[in-house]
Design a protein around this nucleic acid. Structure first.
Length: 953
RNA sequence: GCGGGGGUAACCAAGCGGCCAAAGGUGCAGGACUUAAGAUCCUGUUUCGCAGGAAUUCAAGGGUUCAAAUCCCUUCCCCCGCACCA
């Protein structure tokens, strides 16, 4: 160990020692195993601070478990399938200036390297080397023999096997799905392809088919339940409608709606046109209730929305009610309508606590909405909708749905109508317009004949719930989130036309989507170690069936594949040993996708014994308050952080800056201060080791205090690590320990120092392994990485040493406060510890608290009947009152120590006398108030247990 | 809209019924050391107080309790996800 700390020297030294000794390359043995995995990084850029956080947390747990005696498998691979790498290769190949800038300056790739990149394969090659080097540079304890890339031919064999298996289990099915679509590019648009309307989501409307002389007037609605309250239809007389053949039916819709229909899975054919005013006055049949209702004119109907036709439910929709009211007295004879339409009776169907029978009417009058063009109409609509959705119950009007909650029945009702053929689904953007990068307006297209993973299948979900119930979720509060997300997950399109990846074995026009191919790859780490032993072609289905599922025999697999039977047995044994995954640790962005799929695929493929055991989730990392972006910046790469600060400091910083799902903010000012603290740690260790051997001294209170404190730190650190609270762990193992050591040194502690350091360095080893190896080097024979993690030794917990330090600290603080107030330089300080009668009262009060009978009256009775208390009768009431308040809020442990130990305050203070005199820079004398020799101002009366009275002159 | 997470002193951030005027860090101020800078170490950092004390605080308002930053209700505000994209 050198006097000056040079992180890079220390770190490269130990990294190569670890590598040479192959200490992170585990093989099955008789220890308990621990299999931890972390999502492999996607190879379209360098690892950044976000990876640094997730991966470091994983490495800390791996190292911690290893030091607890587990046989730990911590592997790593690389993800390359999908479209972004292909896109990046194109951008680099055509020298896109922005891409070149980001990758040159932010990802720090030299221009001459970028110049030579022409293909996606080169990108994969380049970043897999970079990322591996980065992970090695920060000291992750990864078994690199198992590395692979998802585009490897061997890996593809495993994916092919998996998908064939799922297909056979009916988990992959054909269907149609709505996607955002650019009619110009004829492609689905992804988020980054959108110029305007990025926030638009797809909304599912129900299209209810009203009938008019054999033709259909479909009305789009978000509230299908209100079909029971329809009194009329609204048509804008000023717009021209299209008559369209839709499958076997004839529909009348707006021009805009017709355009949208062309992209659905329906066959549409334009037949002719109908003017809006020609429809008005006609009567349509409500397909649900059978009632006949008129078509009326309304200006608020927009051709852009839905079908361009609106069903009117004036009892529950303010717009409908207003439009109806606005027609009062209007002359509609031109449309052949003679009756006064404003007197059409409303039909109520939802009962809601806030309103009377007709919520729309109440809302309109409450907000004083004037007419259908009043902006407040929108507000009233939202209000009614919200209240009816959350608190509404359907009335008898709705027949068999009566009594149901609106929020519960909505979807069921819509499905019912659709299966009866009287309704349809219609998709629309929540915001319009949505504009593609090419300038075209996007639509929602129904992609047909798409392959889906059938995640919505109830029995599949049931299995996943079961798996989740048996798992540990870290942090535990996230469990409900997982349950919700499993519930929410729908079928997922699993095939794409472009990108890197594996082809669907039974329909090779399609590429397996890249989230689908990274669900059970953890089991592939077991095979990946043996890749030199066979060619991809040898990895036939029976190989995986045997090695991963135990189907068939090693003998038959060996003869059909030509793979050595010894290898096959070894892989099978490795699988049986290592599986299941004990811990999957990941960033929170992967919860609604990868982590879910990980669970779904595991339960579908493996028997219950091999289902994952726990999942841990952590938050993001921002940079000086700014969100990081791989493609736009800002970004901080792992390598540049390590280059600047060293591996250990980077690790310590990123671990300590946020806990669990909280987002961390990387600030260079903060990591600078971590660096300083860390250098102090190094110095403390260096000085301690350089000191002459001073063991065998008698331990004083302060030494016992330090050893005692250390046990708490170990206990807290262990507890924190068991809950994967790395921040709290570092807080205890490093920052609090640092402050304890400061106090210990300041108090002149020496005797326990070497022992403390020996434990401390092992406590720190999972977090900052390099420096700990360096400090350990002289001390232990073996790597500290393979040593035992400290265990708290209860016999070293010394409550009287703690009380002694507490009273010393309290007293010093009190003296300093007085000095500050009186602003004098003291000549002499005299301390008076509490008299025995006060201690007795305290003990009595604590006893009463334990028996739950502590109150003023009981205490006073007890005291007054005690003859020994008589002499102090005058002082007792006031003191007792104070003691009661103190004891009420006292910590249990303190009460125990105060009653059960015969702690001598005077003796404790005498031991720290030198220290006190040094700090206050004058003589300090100590008396017991029972026997105060010198007390000119009678201060000794103020003495209280654990708080001596003070007299300063 | 649906679902999840939050609002704590100048800032970051612990605490989630009683040793809480509230850990730790940063910043700021004062002091020690030093020729000086830096580093390091002490002390302070809501307000008032020339004897260790008191008052008012944890988004806002109300409630439960001997006791609330912590539990309950209402309101306001912020962040994230909502998919075929990794």
């Amino acid at each position: 160990m050198k006097e000056r700390y040079d992180p890079h020297e220390v770190e490269t030294k130990w990294q190569s020692k670890w590598r040479e000794a192959r200490i992170f390359e585990p093989e099955p043995d008789d220890r308990k195993k621990f299999f931890i995995t972390i999502p492999y990084p996607y190879l379209n850029g360098n690892l950044h601070a976000g990876h640094t956080r997730t991966f470091t947390i994983g490495d800390v747990i791996a190292r911690y478990k290893r030091m607890l005696g587990y046989n730990v498998l911590f592997p790593m691979g690389f993800h390359a399938t999908g479209t972004p790498i292909v896109g990046l290769a194109e951008q680099i190949a055509k020298k896109d200036p922005e891409t070149i800038r980001v990758y040159n300056q932010l990802h720090q790739i030299p221009l001459e390297v970028l110049d030579n990149i022409k293909t996606p394969e080169q990108i994969v090659e380049f970043f897999s080397i970079e990322d591996e080097a980065a992970m090695k540079s920060i000291g992750f304890s990864i078994d690199w023999r198992r590395k692979f890339t998802t585009t490897d031919p061997h890996y593809k064999k495993m994916i092919t096997w998996q998908f064939n298996l799922l297909h056979g289990l009916n988990k992959v099915v054909k269907g149609a799905h709505p996607v955002r679509w650019c009619p110009h590019d004829e492609n689905p648009v992804e988020d980054h392809d959108i110029l305007r309307g990025e926030d638009a989501t797809t909304i599912e409307y129900t299209l209810i088919k009203f009938k008019l002389d054999g033709e259909i007037l479909p009305c789009a609605t978000l509230r299908p339940e209100t079909v029971f309250g329809v009194t009329n239809l609204w048509v804008n007389p000023k717009i021209v409608h299209m008559r369209v053949k839709v499958n076997d039916e004839t529909w009348i819709v707006s021009k805009e709606a017709y355009d949208k229909l062309k992209f659905t899975d329906k066959n549409v054919e334009l037949i002719g046109q109908v003017n809006g005013d020609a429809l008005i006055g006609k009567k349509v049949t409500n397909p649900v209730t059978g009632s006949i209702v008129p078509i009326l004119p309304a200006s608020f109907v927009s051709p852009e929305n839905g079908s361009g036709l609106v069903m009117s439910v004036p009892a529950h929709a303010p717009y409908d009610y207003l439009a109806l009211r606005d027609l009062k007295g209007a002359d509609l004879t031109a449309y052949g309508i003679t009756e006064d339409v404003s007197s059409i009776p409303l039909i109520a169907l939802i009962k809601v606590p806030e309103y009377g029978k007709y919520p729309a009417v109440d809302a309109v009058s409450e907000l004083k909405v004037k007419d259908q063009n009043d902006p407040k109409a929108e507000e009233a609509t939202k209000l009614v909708y919200r209240r009816e959705f959350h608190g509404g119950v359907l009335t008898e009007t709705t027949g068999k749905y009566a009594g149901m909650l609106v929020s519960k029945i909505k979807d069921v009702l819509a499905r019912d109508l659709i299966t009866q053929g009287i309704a349809d689904v219609f998709y629309e953007f929540s915001e319009q317009p949505v504009i593609c990068r090419c300038g075209a307006t996007c639509v929602i297209k129904m992609v047909k004949n798409q392959w889906f993973l059938n995640y919505s299948e109830p029995s599949w979900k049931e299995q996943v719930y079961k798996c989740l119930a048996g798992m540990q979720i870290i942090p535990p509060e996230l469990r409900v989130e997982f349950e919700n997300k499993i519930d929410w997950l729908k079928d997922k399109a699993c095939a794409r036309r472009k990108g890197l990846g594996t082809r669907l074995p039974w329909d090779p026009e399609w590429m397996i989507e890249s989230l689908g191919d990274s669900t059970i790859y953890m089991c592939y780490y077991i095979i990946a170690k043996y890749l030199d032993e066979f060619e991809p072609e040898q990895l036939k289905e029976e190989f995986f069936n045997y090695c991963l599922l135990g189907k068939g025999t090693a003998q038959s697999v060996s003869s059909s594949t030509g793979i050595d039977i010894g290898i096959i047995n070894a892989i099978r044994n490795d699988f049986l040993y290592w599986y299941p995954v004990d811990l999957r640790s990941s960033g929170k962005d992967l919860i609604p996708n990868h982590i879910l799929f990980f669970l779904f695929h595991h339960v579908a493929i493996f028997p219950e014994t091999y289902w994952p055991r726990s999942i841990a989730i952590n938050g993001f990392v921002s940079l000086e308050g700014q969100k990081m972006s791989k493609s736009k910046g800002p970004i901080l790469t792992l390598r540049s952080a390590v280059k600047e600060y060293g591996a250990d400091i980077t690790r310590l910083y990123i671990l300590s800056t946020a806990e669990h799902v909280q987002d961390a903010d990387w600030r260079s000012a903060d990591i600078e201060s971590t660096r300083k603290q860390f250098e102090r740690f190094y110095k403390i260790a260096y000085d301690c080791l350089a000191e002459q051997n001073n063991g065998n001294c008698e331990l004083k209170f302060i030494d016992k205090w330090m050893l005692s404190k250390l046990q708490y730190r170990i206990r807290e650190t262990t507890d924190a690590l068991n809950r994967m609270q790395t921040r709290r762990a570092v807080q205890n193992a490093f920052y609090h320990m640092m402050n304890d050591m400061k106090w210990y040194e300041r108090r002149g502690g020496i005797a326990a120092k070497k022992d403390v350091l020996n434990t401390w360095v092992r406590l720190m080893a999972p977090f900052t392994p390099h420096i700990c190896e360096e400090i350990w080097e002289g001390q232990g024979k073996d790597f500290i990485s393979l040593n035992k993690f400290p265990e708290a030794d209860i016999s070293l917990i010394d409550r009287s040493a703690e009380l002694a330090e507490e009273i010393t600290g309290n007293t010093l603080r009190d003296i300093e406060e007085i000095l500050r107030l009186i602003k004098l330089k003291p000549k002499k300080v005299i301390l008076y510890t509490a008299p025995s009668w006060k201690k007795n009262i305290l003990k009595k009060a604590i006893m009463m608290k334990k028996d739950n009978v502590l109150d003023m009256k009981t205490l006073m009775n007890a005291l007054m009947s005690d003859p020994q208390m008589r002499p102090h009768a005058k002082e007792i009431p006031k003191f007792a009152q104070k003691i009661i308040t103190d004891v009420q809020g006292m910590e249990n442990e303190l009460m125990i120590s105060l009653t059960e130990m015969d702690f001598d305050e005077t003796c404790a203070l005498k031991e720290s006398l030198d220290f006190l005199q040094r700090v206050v820079e004058c003589d300090v004398e100590i008396f017991n108030a029972d026997d105060a020799g010198y007390d000119p101002q009678g201060k000794s009366r103020m003495a209280v247990p654990m708080r001596p009275a003070i007299y300063i002159e």
